[in-house]
Design a protein around this nucleic acid. Structure first.
Length: 557
RNA sequence: GCCUCCGUAGCUCAAUGGAUAGAGCCGCGCUCUUCUAAGGCGUUGAUGUGGGUUCGAUUCCUACCGGAGGCACCA
């Protein structure tokens, strides 16, 4: 329907002599302004040298002609808006479509046939997963689902740093504590904190840690040493396994299933190779013993790719990662989501990648999101003042349990609350996280959406063979005029990679349903059949929308 | 010092250059004999400051004030 109106506006503009003018078609904030509104007349008025309201009248007349029975009215309002109100029959048809289509309701085709890899979460083994990773996972998962909903074939990738200084610090800490068989992620992260402190305070420890770092790289770069890596590599393997297993627990609760896992231990050797090749080709330069990329030639800054010690930095590993990804799963588009603090870092390495491999660089896109900080400031795992993903989930589950005896449902409610908190705001902005306060289980919250759906599903469960009342209301219900916009909202959220507009829409939708629920009896009413269809249309819309956000839908609450 | 992002109600957040700047939390009323009150209905309250562009600016430009992040061997 939206497309039909858009075409009609375009055609009316062409008839008025302003073909191709850029206009917007939006859902008015006020119900009184109809179902759609366009600013076409105001945009084109100047170029045509006409009064906006007069032009609007002209366009409205033409549109009425083009749209015919589909619209109830097309009227000019305010400074020259054209407000379009759909005919009741059109609204009813749309509700019926939403009710009938089930899981297919709202599927788009903007990305049909495209292969898209999306990388997100990126926790580092040997450190604990914290609330920042939960944020990245939540946004990445939703972006993946939104893209998939537009017809793309998507794969989920995770990239984890299992080598580098942080690993050396943790290994050093474990050795000092005499731990040869780490069993919990907490144990390992405590070793990391101890190692990090020693690295800064104790020059002797710093030397030992640097040596461990080199030894790990060396062992991994040389298959022979790897198999005979001795106690150090044995500890590395065990610690890595414990960390990764702990991550999987969190992914399971959050509802993410990765298709590809990449590790720095595998991208490092590839990165070293491609950067050295690039050095020979003049993409990179040597400076003070290190291999660097001079970003200044692109208006950016210089970054080190290979250290003077000969170890690859994150930059070199990211070069290797780009190649490795393409080898494992060739894509049309490769999206990497990370916290905003890495934005300028990515600007540099993407330029380097474009010089190194134009095709790869051209299809790689960095999507930054804000980070989660505490009221006391930014979290730092080096300081040890982090809120871990596991403890966050545990706390919220405990609160949700007060109203839900069933642990599965308490978990679904908790995950819904956590994800909603993240997805309700524009992804670029930071989140100030305050336990208790930030996570609401009422009002503008995840459980609010879940609860609205649960109530609708309950009504639908009473649907029986003997059909209910067959009367029809005089006018379609307000909620129906909201439901019909769902496909457009999902498409826009996918196009802009911003889940929050879908979140806002669903919150408004849940509110409309709750109002409907409070004022209209469904079962046993004269309009039972009609209202059941509205309930089904709502339930499908909410269920599909929640799925796109990655928010679970509990059976009952 | 240079670059990037952000300043909206007491608090946490919305708002495609558009119409009377929306929600929730908190506060105060009302509302379960009704398909689940994690709900509904009502009520107070805001665009950091000064210029500019525009028919129209929370949105774009500019200066300032305030906050965050980044800027060579961390990730």
């Amino acid at each position: 329907m939206e497309e039909r109106i858009r075409d009609a506006v375009g055609e009316a503009l062409a008839a008025a002599g302003a073909a191709g003018a850029a206009f917007t078609l939006e859902r008015p904030t006020e119900a009184a302004h109809g179902d759609y509104a366009t600013n076409a007349a105001m945009v084109a008025a100047k170029a045509l040298g006409k009064n906006p309201r007069e032009l609007a009248e002209e366009l409205a007349t033409k549109m009425k002609e083009l749209l015919g029975d589909a619209v109830e009215k097309v009227e000019v309002a305010g400074p020259g808006f054209i407000n379009i109100t759909l005919a009741a029959g059109e609204v009813v048809a749309s509700t019926a479509e939403a009710a009938a289509k089930g899981e297919d309701w709202g599927k788009g085709k903007a990305e049909a046939g495209k292969r898209v890899m999306i990388e997100y979460t990126q926790p580092n083994p040997f450190k604990e997963m914290h609330i920042g990773h939960v944020m990245g996972n939540t946004i990445g998962e939703s972006v993946a689902r939104l893209t998939q909903n537009e017809g793309a074939t998507i794969v989920r990738a995770n990239y984890q740093g299992d080598v580098g200084p942080h690993v050396a610090k943790a290994l050093w800490g474990l050795q000092k504590a005499g731990i040869t068989e780490p069993t919990t992620a907490t144990e390992i992260s405590e070793a990391y904190v101890a190692g990090n402190r020693a690295y800064e305070d104790d020059p002797e420890a710093k030397g030992e840690i640097d040596a461990i770092n080199r030894a790990v790289y060396q062992a991994l770069g040389d298959p022979l040493t790897l198999t005979e890596g001795g106690a150090l590599m044995e500890l590395w393997r065990k610690g890595r396994d414990v960390s990764l297993a702990a991550f999987e627990e969190v992914y399971k609760v959050l509802g993410t299933k990765f298709d590809y896992y990449f590790f720095e231990s595998e991208t490092a050797p590839i990165g070293l190779k491609v950067v050295r090749d690039g050095l020979a080709r003049g993409v990179f330069e040597e400076s003070e013993g290190a291999v660097v990329y001079k970003g200044e030639k692109r208006g950016l800054h210089t970054r080190v790719f290979i250290t003077s010690q000969g170890t690859p930095t994150y930059e070199a590993k990211d070069m290797g990662l780009a190649f490795l990804k393409e080898e494992r799963w060739p894509s049309d588009k490769s999206v990497v989501t990370t916290a905003q603090e890495q934005a300028s870092y990515f600007a540099v390495i993407l330029e380097a990648l474009k010089e190194l491999a134009p095709l790869l660089g051209g299809k790689t896109q960095h999507v930054p999101y804000g980070f989660m900080k505490l009221t006391t400031g930014k979290m730092s795992s080096r300081e040890g003042n982090v809120i871990t993903a596991a403890s966050l989930i545990e706390d919220v589950v405990k609160r949700a349990s007060e109203k839900n005896a069933d642990p599965l449902i308490a978990e679904q409610v908790a995950v819904g609350a956590i994800k909603y908190m993240i997805l309700r705001q524009a992804p670029g902005a930071d989140i100030v996280f305050e336990p208790e306060k930030s996570l609401s289980l009422e009002g503008d919250s995840g459980p609010y959406l879940q609860y609205a759906l649960v109530r609708a599903v309950k009504i639908l469960s009473y649907e029986s063979e003997e059909a209910g009342g067959k009367e029809e209301p005089q006018e379609p219900y307000a909620i129906e005029r909201l439901i019909l916009h769902y496909p457009e909202v999902a498409a826009r959220a996918a196009k802009l990679l911003v889940p929050n507009i879908l979140t806002s829409y669903l919150t408004e939708l849940a509110g409309a349903w709750n109002s409907f629920y409070a004022s209209e009896q469904v079962l046993g009413s004269p309009e039972e059949e009609y209202k059941m269809r509205v309930a089904r249309a709502f339930a499908n819309t909410m269920a599909n929308g929640l799925a796109l956000l990655g928010i679970p839908a509990p059976e009952r609450m």
